[in-house]
Design a protein around this nucleic acid. Structure first.
Length: 693
DNA sequence: CAGCATTGTCATCTT
DNA sequence: TTAAGATGACAATGC
């Protein structure tokens, strides 16, 4: 019972973290051990729909007032991040992990992100991401602090791409949650492990700041301490980040994954969600994301009293524009303040920004410590389970592709000419036969040269050969020509009128086989065999003194065949032989056609299977790319949260403690700074009720 | 000489 | 009903 309770407790914690990723608020405090901080502080948030409204509301309003959050004037106050990191540390499960030790190897403590910090790898890609479309501030080595330097123009610093990413992230936080608790729970668990490890290894938050700058998207500074795995190799070309995360993610998650998760279904669900979100995002991509930090309306703490050191402007005036990216069009005014408990429930539906952002933060505390080593469960799963699968599939396809291609080509050629021969050009067909009595030689020749099919034209060739040689009965060569044409394409080469035909109807031959050896051997073998087979009836016909060739017996239409029989006075034995020859001849062609059809069917099925495998592989790859994109966006949103929070100052000019305060969305789209204990009392109660259904 | 592949042939069914 | 085609099964043949 005790173990069960422990299990449930841990599972609920993970589940709660998962819900936090979705912006769903859930109260797990009652389940948490006393020594752990209340999880609701980081996972608070209203329902998905609620949160979504909030997030959308963050975009669109730019008053142009105040100081931009990226102002360099705020750099000196970034020591607040230490407190923030402490809060983060408290809010995370400390799960022993041994695979994350090297995360901070390339992190420097100067608080700025520069190429030097990232070592040989790509420097501070996250800065580029934050200022993605055109903003070069990240490359100036200014670090995250500089983001707030350009106050009035700060909103413009948030490129549309950034805004779009944030928006997408926000929606996905919402949408991903429902029904995916288990899956993301495991992700969170893994990330939490990494976070704890990173925080434990780097207790100094100052050292974490640079890491915060590092872009989790590329994560190219990681490979130096990454363990190369097959999946890394396979994936590194197109997604170095994922491969970087692979080894870290795999160990903590592997067991869980193997135990219960149906990855494929999860991917399907995620992708379906992401598709919807992508469409939605496209529509909103034009809207900048603003954080509106207008003077707070709340009681306990008024952020208008907060000041940003180094900035002469008041918070209410200067900070507002900075925060506009997070405000909603519906409520441009920002309430960046803590609230009284009564106001919260009645006036606002709170979405703890930490709840929204901490998901990414949880994910990206790894970012904080080492963006490149961001432990992204999705990406990790992607790397190991998905991409490996993709790669294997592709490799398998690649291996057999040449053969497949050859067979496919052959199939196409055959389908183009082979089967159609019967219906269009076969001497047996009425159209061809009606003129074949006098010109059967020409018609047969045309059929032979045009089609070149195996069994379909063999008798045409017979016919031609027989006609050309005067229909004298048994000609040892005719079947040889027939078989040469059908079995060994190389034998066509000495036939000038067939040189332009590239068809290969040797369906019994492997395309890759050396044409010089195997086909010739095969050809000789079949030729002799066919000669004997054809020779039997020919000999019989000669023995019975049949006055016309077997070619005619077999290929003439039934009317002409009967006319031919009446033209000659044949004995009963001769008539029987002629009919048997005709029957056997037609059945031989029929058997050849039948076998060819059978083979074509098999080849078609094989092609279809391979095509479906390729399609599946492509779709899986697309899923992986989308998931990676999602992770990047989450990380960027987290960065923004940290930027905003770290720049807030109380009336004394001191940064707010992340342990005590957190940013929340309100129902009207504003962002408020709330005491954590207050939000725990007021905000999460309704949420818990909502989630228990 | 057994095993395999190819082809022809027969019986039967379908068109 | 009949001719022609389709096809499974078997045999013949060669490697």
């Amino acid at each position: 019972m005790l173990s069960l309770k422990k299990y449930l407790t841990e599972g609920l914690i993970q589940f709660t973290i998962l819900l936090s990723l979705m912006g769903v608020r859930l109260d797990l405090d009652s389940y948490l051990p006393s020594h752990l901080p209340s999880l609701h502080e980081i996972i608070l948030g209203p329902t998905s729909a609620y949160t979504q409204t909030q997030f959308h509301s963050l975009r669109g309003t730019l008053d142009g007032y105040g100081v931009h959050p990226k102002s360099v004037d705020l750099d000196q106050f970034f020591t607040s991040r230490r407190l923030l990191s402490c809060v983060r540390a408290l809010d995370r499960l400390r799960v022993p992990s041994t695979a994350l030790d090297a995360w901070l190897v390339h992190r420097e403590t100067d608080g700025s992100v520069s190429s030097a910090q990232t070592g040989s790898s790509r420097p501070s890609d996250n800065q580029q991401d934050l200022s993605s479309s055109g903003s070069e501030q990240g490359r100036d080595g200014q670090g995250l602090e500089e983001l707030g330097a350009t106050a009035p123009s700060g909103s413009s610093d948030l490129s549309k791409e950034d805004i779009d990413l944030i928006d997408i992230l926000w929606r996905q936080d919402i949408d991903l949650g429902v029904g995916r608790e288990d899956f993301e729970n495991r992700q969170l668990q893994t990330e939490n492990e990494k976070v704890w490890e990173s925080l434990r290894d780097e207790p100094d938050t100052e050292t974490l700041e640079p890491v915060l700058q590092v872009d989790g998207e590329t994560g190219e500074n990681i490979p130096q301490f990454q363990t190369v795995t097959p999946s890394d190799v396979l994936d590194s070309a197109q997604c170095p980040v994922v491969s970087d995360r692979t080894d870290r993610l795999l160990s903590p998650m592997l067991s869980d994954i193997n135990s219960s998760l149906d990855l494929e279904e999860q991917w399907q669900d995620l992708m379906s969600l992401m598709d919807l979100q992508a469409m939605d995002v496209n529509g909103s991509s034009e809207d900048p994301l603003y954080l509106n930090l207008d003077p707070p309306l709340q009681q306990d703490i008024r952020l208008d009293e907060a000041s940003i050191p180094g900035c002469s402007h008041s918070v209410s005036s200067d900070f507002t524009p900075n925060m506009e990216p997070f405000s909603t069009t519906e409520s441009p005014g920002l309430q960046l303040s803590s609230q009284n408990s009564t106001d919260m429930n009645s006036t606002f539906g709170f979405t703890n920004l930490t709840g929204i952002l901490f998901p990414s933060q949880l994910n990206s505390t790894g970012n904080i410590t080492s963006p490149s080593t961001v432990s992204d469960p999705l990406s990790g799963l992607l790397d190991e389970a998905l991409l490996d699968e993709i790669s294997l599939i592709e490799l398998a396809l690649e291996e057999g592709f040449s053969q497949v291609q050859a067979s496919q080509l052959q199939e196409e050629l055959d389908s183009d000419s082979g089967l159609s021969l019967d219906s269009h050009h076969s001497p047996v067909s009425p159209s061809g036969s009606e003129s074949s009595t006098s010109s059967c030689s020409s018609s047969s020749t045309a059929s032979f040269s045009e089609e070149g099919a195996v069994g379909y034209s063999s008798d045409s060739e017979l016919f031609e050969n027989e006609e050309s040689e005067g229909a004298t009965g048994y000609q040892p060569q005719y079947s040889k020509i027939c078989r040469m044409s059908s079995q060994d394409p190389s034998q066509f080469q000495h036939l000038p009128f067939l040189e332009h035909i590239g068809h290969n109807h040797t369906y019994n031959m492997v395309p890759e086989e050396p044409e010089e050896v195997q086909p010739m051997v095969e050809s000789r073998r079949t030729q002799s065999f066919v000669d004997r087979q054809a020779g039997r009836d020919e000999q019989r016909a000669r023995a019975m003194k049949i006055p016309f060739s077997n070619e005619k017996i077999i290929n003439l239409p039934v009317e002409e065949f009967n006319e031919l029989l009446t033209k000659y006075q044949l004995s009963e034995a001769q008539l029987c032989l002629v009919r048997d020859i005709r029957r056997r001849g037609k059945n031989k062609m029929a058997a050849q056609n039948c076998r060819k059809r059978k083979l074509d069917t098999i080849l078609n099925l094989e092609q279809e299977v391979k095509r479906l495998n390729r399609e599946r592989s492509s779709q899986l790859r697309e899923k992986g790319e989308n998931l990676r994109s999602l992770q990047r966006m989450k990380q960027e949103v987290e960065h923004l949260y940290h930027e905003v929070f770290s720049q807030l100052r109380d009336p004394d000019g001191q940064p707010y403690s992340p342990q005590r305060y957190a940013l929340h969305y309100t129902i009207n789209g504003s962002i408020v700074l709330m005491p954590r204990n207050l939000e725990g009392q007021q905000a999460r109660r309704p949420e818990r009720k909502d989630r228990r259904k």
